[in-house]
Design a protein around this nucleic acid. Structure first.
Lengths: 137, 137
DNA sequence: CTAGGACTTCAAGTACACTTTAAGTCAAGG
DNA sequence: CCTTGACTTAAAGTGTACTTGAAGTCCTAG
């Protein structure tokens, strides 16, 4: 399979696929006169990579996920990520609530709303984030 | 209130607060001999900003959210975002399922798992993303 | 008077995840 | 033989969201 075909079948751009290869998310395929020639197994592998990326795994995390699959420590990694995903889902739940409140309220300004919201959920604030583009959910 | 105090109370760094001000997420406070002097309303406003950021709103979206609050089109914006958040939550749900399957399976390699997963959910693939750091959930 | 700490601005730096560009290679079709 | 289109690499560029650094200001305490 050429990179173009793999691209069509996964919805990833060719450049993204090459990038994933250099990042070790995908084993380097054999070359036929210079060009990448993927075998059928590359498709499901990329499917996992894309699922994981879409769900918020970073490149480094996906690398660990696929290269250490089934090995020592892998289960711990997956379980830690599961916890993270659940807390992300919880954040989304909070935000849905916020938006629904804002949509349903008659506050004259957003400051008033914020006052109500900060009284309602004091436990949500205080843990300084400090990561730049780390939090992805 | 000084920026330092506001920082402590919101869990945001002073530099992030200044950045939000230049980006229009927060009205510029009055200055006392050069320094920012926030009044009490700034706290709940920042609370909304932080909630929104944590839940995945981009800077530009938060700006619209707070500056156009209650105005024409605002409701449409909020409702669109609500849809987005729900689909993000769905993605997380998918990922939780993926991880649980991976954790529970006895596949010899990840390629095999990917094969099973791509058969299981063919509808999830094909829509090319094309946004760089747009997808945040 | 001077040192310390918190603040100020502006410019530059950083991390992530790719994309874009430039310059070149290769096989097939006309 | 020449063009076309898909591919190759390496390097540079992009957008988001801040952080960091440099150089300076202001108030308080000793």
């Amino acid at each position: 399979m050429t990179i173009g075909e793999l691209s069509r079948r996964t919805g990833l751009s060719p450049s993204a696929i090459r990038y994933y290869e250099t990042e070790g998310l995908l084993p380097a395929p054999r070359r036929r006169s210079g060009r990448r020639d993927f075998d059928a197994g590359a498709l499901p592998q990329l499917v996992v990579v894309r699922l994981a990326r879409d769900a918020g795994f970073s490149i480094a995390e996906v690398r660990r996920l696929v290269t250490e699959f089934g090995r020592e420590g892998w289960r711990r990694l997956a379980e830690r990520k599961l916890v993270e995903i659940r807390s992300a889902a919880e954040r989304l739940r909070v935000m849905t609530g916020l938006l629904e409140k804002l949509l349903g309220c008659e506050c004259p300004d957003i400051e008033f709303c914020g006052r109500a919201l900060s009284r309602a959920r004091p436990a949500d604030f205080g843990e300084r984030a400090s990561g730049r583009t780390k939090r992805r959910f």
